[in-house]
Amino acid sequence: MSTLLKPKTAAELRDVYLRQEMMPTIFCDGCGLGNVLNYTLWALDELQVDLDQVVFVSGIGCSSRLSGYVNADGMHTTHGRALSFASGIKAANPNLKVIVFTGDGDGAGIGGNHLLHTIRRNMDMTVILVNNYIYGMTGGQSAPTTPIGGLSTTTPYGNVEYPMDICALALALEAPYVARWTVNQPYPPIKSIAQGIAKRGFALIEMLVPCPTAYGGRNGLKGVEAIWQWYRENTVLLDDFEHIMEFGTLEEQEEIKHKLKVGVLRDTERESFEERWAKLVEQVKL
């Protein structure tokens, strides 16, 4: 696995990609958002992308602070509207690589409609949607992804609404690249984010990130170790899931049935908005 990454160190990585004066990050102890930033930077390093050709866009929330730490052009936009701004950037200059950091409350809750239509349009961008099951920055209100029974400040007796599966939504709208990862293992998300950035068309990478402060503390997962362990125990690799469902015993199948599937859920080719637009321009030219 060591051949995957170029022989560079974190110290060299941060000199190239980070705004040193912004560090250290504002995130709480045990938050996985720093890891998401770390993996994205390693993915950019793997692809050897020129930082002047990358634009980071984000909305509002803990996850949306990430664009401010990268030493590249970026926009910190209004709540839920990151994808609309990103679509505008991409339409104005299709040569730029657009990476969107958004959260579950920002991208799937308040900006849910923008998410639908940006996927439908198949804009060529990479969306790293950080899912921590809660509105963390505003004080722990329940989000569209909060599991049934999950405690939050707005659901003090437990959540009764069914949660939303963001990857299933993207699959239904035929996004060409859909993946879901936890932050527990570094290598698979790094590889996946690199694939997403290289993909022509909409790439959605849902990162399951532990929030020990707003979610973990209220839901019996107090402390860094407990909540990170929960993610390790309640997820199963897609390949393992399929393998066990086909060849495993009944007990093994029963054990993994309720678990979240992580992995690359779809990787296909689909003509992006820019390609179709360029064709149309060519067609109607006088």
């Binding site: 160190t9 974190a10 560090m23 938050c31 720093g34 930033l37 770390n38 993996y39 290598y187 790094i190």
Partner: peptide
């Protein structure tokens, strides 16, 4: 193995 370096959310660790 550099796992600590890759997992550090604050880019604080370097393995040499």
């Amino acid at each position: 193995c550099r796992l600590c370096e890759l997992l550090c959310p604050d880019f604080a660790i370097t393995v040499t």
